[in-house]
Design a protein around this nucleic acid. Structure first.
Length: 576
RNA sequence: GCCCCUCUAGCUCAACGGUAGAGCAGCGGACUUUUAAUCCGUUGGUUCGGGGUUCGAGACCCCGGGGGGGCACCA
């Protein structure tokens, strides 16, 4: 469990005394080039063949760029890199020589398993209270990656790191013996070690394991990034997330928080009686949202399929089926731009609750996110923008049309003639598509004039019917829906409504969507006949909610880019 | 798709258009209480790729590539 509410201050990459790596900028991995240079042998050929290479599709310029796997040349293997020199190739050669030497003496440098008595966190919990200069006869076995080493003549201090924490190894020649001491000296930073020894503290009070036996658990043949600065180059951090996670505490922290949030959501929903389900990713129609889908193809069915853009329509079928309270946490795919707030594949939680309406969805949104913040950081207080916000306090609720009026000083309503609204939009620099109706223009006005100013958590309610084809009409205003979106820091985090359950009205809404599609709106929906059939069986009054889990993770982790909370964000393939 | 920024040793970063450097890592040496250990010595470069300008280019110009940010796109 994470306990700190605020991000740790900048500091070293390898976590020592609670400090952490500072994310930064610049630099580029030019490893292939260096390989060649370091090897310095003219016989090297072809190793600059990229692992991935572009095969321009010559038939049509409009066709996509294609990337294929090319065979990696191994011609350089007959070259003996100088193991005395430096550079990546020489470093790898030296470490591979050590692997061979170990095998020659009957030691497997990649053994099958290791049994430890404690994780490093457990070690600290159990023995962390000893004062300076304590010697014990408590025998422990621990395992981790050696990230730092300080040689002191006949004594070596090393920092062993596992997922849970770190501990110092105290390797004394007089304890481990000449042979063991020499063997330990052959280990490289980055090697995985399993050690056995007794618990002690140094004169300075540092908890340590006095090592009397060491096993190499896995040889790292590639050097670790800078022990102090870690990785700062975003390209390398995202492509080589493994290396990022090894050296950047801040990266580990963000994904830990993400995990805690999702686990918290599941706990809350389970305690509220929701059933977790899984629905198809491959859709015959990409419905439930306005977005461009990814298209794929099933060979045996000889059929085009879409990757889902929302979970909504299948989950509501389950409400028809009487499942009452259902949720799904799953990946959805939208074939749209990439930005600090968008990744083509991202994680959505959607839930549907029979007999509820949107006001209960607002309540559960607050509950889920506030509890997640507490579970992930230990506090409901977050720094949002420049402000400290306690999520436990009620969040603002405001109608979309009122927020627009607040921003521009003019009342708007979707009942107003489209020409009037179009003129207003013009005044605010919005280029209106002639196909847009009043409702769509109001949404555009909101996005252009009010959205970015919504910093503190705010439920924006009362979206026009035109832009909400699956939401129920407001019981007091036929032009609006009983819908809300949660905005924080100008970003949409959640969306929910009282679900439209009248099959006749739903069909009319779908047909309006289809008309819009035929008018050229690629994001407009189609008529989902099977969904309509489900509604004809009768869907109870239902509240529905979708929450963008990546954006919630961004909020609670306090990071500025969605790539910081997605382990392997979508990138162009690397040319090796 | 457009605009701006960026790419130098394994990593983190320097270098007015004038000999490509430092720290860490590596290698050799000293050191039994260090903790980014320290100290002495030392290896390592197709400066993202390709063209051009110039007596001379890491730097300036053009084309291409990766990444970041912004815009557009994204209910």
């Amino acid at each position: 469990m994470l306990t700190a509410g605020a991000p740790p201050p900048p500091g070293p990459a390898i976590r020592i005394s609670g400090l952490a790596a500072e994310p930064g900028v610049a630099a580029h991995s030019a490893e292939a080039t260096t390989n060649i240079a370091a090897v310095r042998v003219s016989r090297v050929r072809s190793i600059r063949e990229p692992t991935y290479h572009r095969v321009p599709n010559s038939s049509r310029s409009a066709s996509p760029k294609r990337y294929g796997l090319a065979p990696v040349s191994h011609e350089e293997t007959d070259v003996e890199p100088d193991p005395i020199g430096s550079g990546l190739a020489a470093e790898k050669a030296k470490r591979l020589d050590k692997v061979r030497a170990l095998r020659d003496t009957g030691t497997n440098p990649y053994p099958y398993r290791f049994d430890r008595s404690h994780t490093l966190e457990q070690l600290r919990t159990t023995y962390g209270s000893f004062g300076p200069g304590t010697e014990t006869d408590q025998r422990v076995t621990v395992a981790g990656r050696m990230m730092l080493r300080r040689t002191q003549g006949k004594l070596i201090f090393a920092t062993l790191v596992d997922r849970s924490g770190e501990v110092q190894l105290f390797v004394s020649k007089s304890v481990i013996g000449d042979e063991g001491f020499a063997a330990f000296g052959e280990f490289d930073l980055g090697d995985w070690l399993g050690v056995e020894g007794t618990v002690m503290t140094t004169r300075n009070g540092e908890l340590s394991v006095k090592v009397d036996r060491v096993d190499l658990l896995s040889k790292a043949v590639r050097p670790m990034p800078d022990k102090w600065h870690g990785l700062t180059d975003t390209d390398t951090r995202f492509r080589q997330r493994y290396a990022d996670l090894i050296v950047n505490e801040e990266a580990r922290r963000a994904f830990r928080i993400r995990h805690e949030i999702i686990a918290s959501f599941r706990r809350t929903l389970q305690s509220e009686g929701f059933i977790e389900v899984e629905t198809p990713v491959l859709h015959i129609e990409a419905g439930g949202a306005h977005a461009r889908p990814f298209v794929t193809y099933h060979n045996t069915l000889d059929m085009q399929l879409y990757l889902r853009i929302a979970l909504e329509l299948h989950l509501k079928r389950l409400i028809v089926g009487g499942m009452d309270r259902v949720f799904e946490i799953g990946r959805i795919f939208r074939n749209e731009g990439i930005s600090t707030r968008h990744n083509p594949e991202f994680t959505m939680m959607e839930l549907y609750q029979a007999f509820a309406d949107y006001s209960e969805m607002i309540d559960i949104t607050e509950q889920l996110i506030t509890q997640a913040a507490v579970d992930a950081t230990g506090s409901s207080v977050l720094t949002i923008g420049d402000e400290e916000v306690d999520l436990a306090q009620p969040w603002r609720r405001a109608r979309m049309i009122d927020l627009i009026a607040e921003a521009i000083g003019t009342e708007v309503h979707p009942s107003m003639p489209v020409e009037t609204l179009r003129a207003l939009a013009d005044q605010h620099g919005i280029a209106c598509n002639p196909a847009w109706g009043s409702g769509k223009i109001i949404e555009e006005l909101f996005e252009a004039t009010a959205e970015s100013a919504v910093i503190r958590p705010t439920f924006v309610t009362g979206h026009p019917v035109e832009i909400s084809p699956l939401a129920r009409t407001d019981r007091n205003d036929p032009f609006l829906t009983e819908r809300f979106e949660l905005f924080v820091l100008g970003r949409e985090l959640a969306n929910g409504y009282s679900e439209l359950n009248d099959p006749v009205e739903q069909r009319a809404r779908f047909e309006a969507e289809q008309a819009s599609r035929q008018a050229g709106n690629v994001e407009a929906g189609t008529v989902d006949e099977d969904y309509l059939r489900a509604l004809e069986y009768g869907m109870p009054p239902t509240g529905g909610l979708g929450i963008g889990m990546d954006r919630v993770a961004m909020l609670i982790a306090g990071v500025q880019s969605i790539k910081e909370v997605i382990l392997f964000p979508t990138l162009r393939p690397e040319v090796l």
